[in-house]
Nucleic acid binder design. Structure first.
Length: 635
RNA sequence: GCCGACGUAGCUCAAUGGAAGAGCAGCUGAUUUGUAAUCAGCAGGCUGGGGGUUCGAGUCCCUUCGUCGGCUCCA
């Protein structure tokens, strides 16, 4: 009997019955030592598996998603093995490969501290040196249960008990270590060449806060030292762009013990904010939005009516006025609804798009606060669109277009998610299904790629979320479009239709920036603090060379101010190099150096922060160019 | 909220349980400077707060607040 398989070059090959992937792997690695994993019909597969008839076989190295995953998954087993050797009483959780690395969760008898990671790394190096072969073992449920019972692994037993009936239970074994695992893995522990344990953190068993908290060890692994160091350096570089660091250095904002989670914007940050909101207003007026302002504090009865009292109370702040309960608004919707409800509407008035830069307060858990990215008070660029049910699809589509226009101005890449009905939800299943399918349809009709986020919707409706990334690649939700058939019911909103009867409108809640604070943070990191000219707190610094040219410099400065640029005059008693350095450090886009030569010719020497000296230019020419750059919002 | 770590001058960081320091920033003066740091001097502190151990605490212990990395949650 012969086995026929297709190789990656498209050629067919024939092997004797019983040939394993390992046999082919040996053959291949003779020519390419980098190969890590075998794919059978695109799926990672154990090396000891026999070649299936008519399958497509491919080998991948670390630069493929699958190769890296297998490599790092093996690193996580080496971690668990080392921990087991050092702390025999430890109980194993799970240990998958993740983006850029891997982790393993443990329950230690006595909690370890980050100092212990060095010892664990040493032990891991030993295991790597031992080049222990890694073997797959398949067993029955009973065998597996007995094995992990003997080894005192309650978490593994829990996992086994939840495996579907009839599933093949596989374990991977290296030396005296064995782990429940679907695999596959590298052939032996010596294959892991460079790794580092990068962190220690708490993590609830199976991600549920009702479960015990385990200790999670994070690490990363690469095929060689250079690539590992390259990655670690990249992280180091990313930290220099951290908005908390730049926010302080560039005097954009500050945070204080006296107000945890409530950021203070300084003048520079406020200027960026202003530019963002100016642009936002301009776009929204054009897109047919009105703008309102509603109070921060509203009576309890309103929150009871809206459902927030039942569904959001633990995140809200309360106060008492004249012996009545009030709440600080955690969302802007009830305010917008009161505005909408203050007059009668004809179907001809709809859609009505009501926007508000609304400040909301939410009591977030203290451990989740994070610079401007996760705060307890933030400004949402909110809008509520009240419309006929027949207008929903079109309106959702227009919001998506608007969203894309904004994000491309900043040069952001974004990821889309669709979130469905959560456990704690208002309304009937029917309403949810209807709302969810509308959102699906709009996304599909625009061929937008999205991830389904089961059970992650708002309590009143499903939503489409837009995620942006920070400098370390962590993703943050910014824009969101939430479809709501609940609030109109709760508040008995109506419009008069063509038929003269009252009908129920639908509502979209949507934000584009999401929160101004979060957006500001992401912009700081995205640009590394070097804002495009239109947003830059100071756009031009005029730098006289000596005090002979102070008068001329002042004239230049006045003219730029007259042209309404944000301009600074650096007439301090310092050398030119010093002033340039300082302007560079402050990331000011343009420096105009004026000395005797420039005064004589009536010009300015232009220097751009990212291009250096651009030579002399007539001031009116510079002013025109700058105006264009600002109007076009060039990045 | 939970797990772990960390809080020293505005910032970045030193200081065996034994006299709280440096660089940058700030201020004063000198220097008149040509594309990323001129020189000198001065000032700057209840070592996050509270309690304890000790002859003696920045250092050890407890507690509280804050911050950082995660988990959970979310814009």
């Amino acid at each position: 009997m012969q086995i026929k398989v297709k190789l990656e070059n498209g050629k067919e090959a024939v092997y004797p019955q019983g040939t394993t992937c390992m046999d082919l792997y040996r053959e291949k690695t003779a020519g390419n030592k980098e190969l890590l994993a075998v794919l059978i019909d695109g799926e990672e597969c154990d090396l000891n598996a026999p070649l299936p008839e008519n399958s497509e076989i491919a080998f991948v190295d670390f630069d493929s998603l699958q190769g890296a995953r297998v490599y790092r998954h093996t690193a996580s087993h080496i971690l668990a093995h080392a921990v087991k050797r050092l702390y025999p009483g430890v109980k194993l959780g799970i240990g998958p490969a993740i983006e850029n690395g891997f982790y393993y969760d443990f329950e230690f008898e006595d909690p370890i501290s980050s100092d212990d990671l060095k010892t664990i790394e040493k032990e891991m190096k030993k295991i790597i040196k031992e080049k222990l072969p890694i073997r797959r073992r398949e067993m029955s449920r009973e065998e597996a249960e007995q094995l992990f019972r003997e080894r005192g692994e309650p978490y593994k037993l829990e996992l086994i008990s939840e495996l579907p009936e009839g599933e093949i239970i596989s374990c991977y074994e290296q030396g005296d270590f064995i782990d429940l695992c679907t695999g596959p893995h590298l052939p032996h522990t010596g294959k892991v060449k460079a790794f580092k344990l990068t962190g220690l953190a708490g993590a609830y068993w199976r991600g549920d806060e009702r479960n015990p908290m385990l200790q999670r060890i994070y690490g990363t692994a690469f095929p060689d030292k250079d690539r590992l160091n390259e990655y670690l350096n990249m992280l180091e570089e990313a930290r220099k762009r951290d908005h908390r660091k730049l926010g302080r250095e560039l005097e954009l904002f500050s945070l204080h013990e006296e107000a945890p989670g409530f950021p203070f914007l300084h003048n520079n940050g406020a200027i960026v904010w202003q530019e963002l909101t100016d642009y936002w207003r301009q776009e929204h007026r054009q897109a047919g939005y009105e703008e309102i302002k509603t109070p921060l504090i509203l009576n309890r009865s309103l929150w009871e009516q809206s459902g927030h009292w039942d569904h959001f109370r633990e995140n809200m702040y309360f106060t008492r006025i004249d012996e009545q309960d009030y709440a600080v608004k955690p969302m802007n919707c009830p305010g917008a609804i009161l505005v909408f409800r203050s007059k009668m509407h004809s179907y001809r008035d709809l859609p009505r798009r009501i926007a508000e830069m609304g400040i909301v307060h939410r009591h977030e858990l203290s451990g989740t606060l994070h610079g401007l990215l996760r705060v307890r008070s933030f400004t949402q660029d909110d809008a509520h669109i009240f419309m006929l049910p027949s207008q929903v699809e079109n309106e959702v589509g227009e919001v998506i277009d608007l969203m894309d226009r904004f994000y491309s101005v900043f040069g952001f890449n974004y990821r889309v998610e669709l979130s469905t009905k959560p456990e704690k939800a208002m309304g009937t299943q029917e309403m949810w299904d209807k709302a969810t399918s509308i959102l699906e349809r709009v996304l599909d009709s625009r061929s937008i790629d999205y991830k389904l986020n089961e059970g992650d919707g708002a309590f009143y409706g499903p939503k489409i979320d837009f995620h942006l990334e920070d400098c370390l690649g962590r993703s943050w939700q910014c824009g969101t479009i939430q479809l709501d058939f609940q609030m109109p019911e709760k508040f008995d909103l109506t419009y008069v239709g063509e038929d003269g009867d009252r009908h129920r409108p639908a509502v979209i809640h949507r934000v584009i920036y999401g929160s101004m604070e979060r957006l500001l943070a992401l912009l700081i990191e995205h640009y590394g603090g070097a804002f495009p000219v239109w947003m830059a707190p100071v756009q031009v610094s005029v730098i006289p060379v000596t005090d002979r040219t102070h008068d001329y410099a002042r004239k230049v400065y006045e003219q730029l101010k007259e042209a309404s640029f944000r301009v600074a005059l650096d007439d301090r008693n310092e050398k030119v190099g010093y002033k340039i350095r300082e302007a560079q450090v402050k990331k000011i886009p343009y420096m105009l150096i004026v000395g005797d030569k420039e005064e004589e010719s009536g010009q300015v020497a232009v220097r751009r922060r990212d291009q250096g000296d651009l030579g002399a230019e007539n001031l009116p020419v510079f002013i025109e160019k700058l105006k264009t750059e600002i109007n076009e919002k060039s990045i």
